[in-house]
Amino acid sequence: MTEAVIRLEGVHKRFGDLHVLRGIDLVVPAGSVVCVIGPSGSGKSTLLRCINLLEPIDSGRVVFEGKDITTSSRKELEVVRRGIGMVFQQFNLFPHKSVIENVSLAQRTVLKRSAEEARARSESMLERVGLSDKLEEYPERLSGGQQQRVAIARALAMDPHVMLFDEVTSALDPELIKEVLDVMRELANEGMTMIVVTHEIGFARDVANDVVFMDEGVIVEKGPVRRVIDAPREQRTKRFLGLVLEH
C-alpha cells in the first residue's frame, strides 16, 4: 500500500536563466492524494508537468512505479504516459470532436481498443462524471465545469495509475467549481493516486492525505494535511495560509 507511485529526487528545472525548480524531493505513495499549494510562480505547475515529462528536467530523477523515466525515449514515454492521467487548467478538449469522441480517441489510437469497447468505456466514464446526457455535444456548447469533467473522464478512460490535476478549477466561474471538486473527491475516495496543484485549500483540507507547500522553486514544507494546514511550522507557510484562508 505504501509503495511509491511517483518519486522525485533532486529535480532541477531551468527555463533559460530562470531556475524554476531548485531541488525537489517528493514521494507519492500509491492511493494517496497529495495537494500542492503555494503562490503563483512557485513552480507548482512546472513540478506537475515534470512528472509526466511534458517538461524535461535538467537534473535529478523522476521515478514512476519503480522505473526511472528521466531519460526515457519518446517511444518509451508514450507508454509511460498511458499510466499517468493529466487534467489541465484550460481543459484542452479537442474542439473538433464531440464529447464521446474526445473520451474515445486516445483509447482507440493509443490503447488500440475497438470502437465498441472504447465507446462503452467512454459512456461509463462520462456517467461517472455525470455527463451521460451530453455524449454527442461539442465542447463549445458546454459550460466550463462540464468541459472539465469531460477532461477528467477522458484521462480516466485510459485507466491510469495516477492522476495529475493542474489548477483545474482556476479557470472556472465560482458556481462551477463545486461540480468538478465533487468528481475529484469521489475519485479520491475510490483510491486513485492523485497529485493536485490547487488554490482550493478547503478541498485540500477535506480530501488530501498530504500537502506540499512550495515557494520560489523549493518545497518549503510538506506533510500530513492536518499538520501543514492547521499547524504549519514554517513562517512562509504560515504567511501564505494566513493570506489565503483570510478570504
Binding site: 484542452n92 480517441l105 484521462a155
Partner: peptide, 12 residues
Amino acid sequence: GQSEAAHSLGMS
C-alpha cells in the same frame, strides 16, 4: 494545450 493534452494521453 492541444498537443500537450494529446501527448499526456500517450499519443505519439
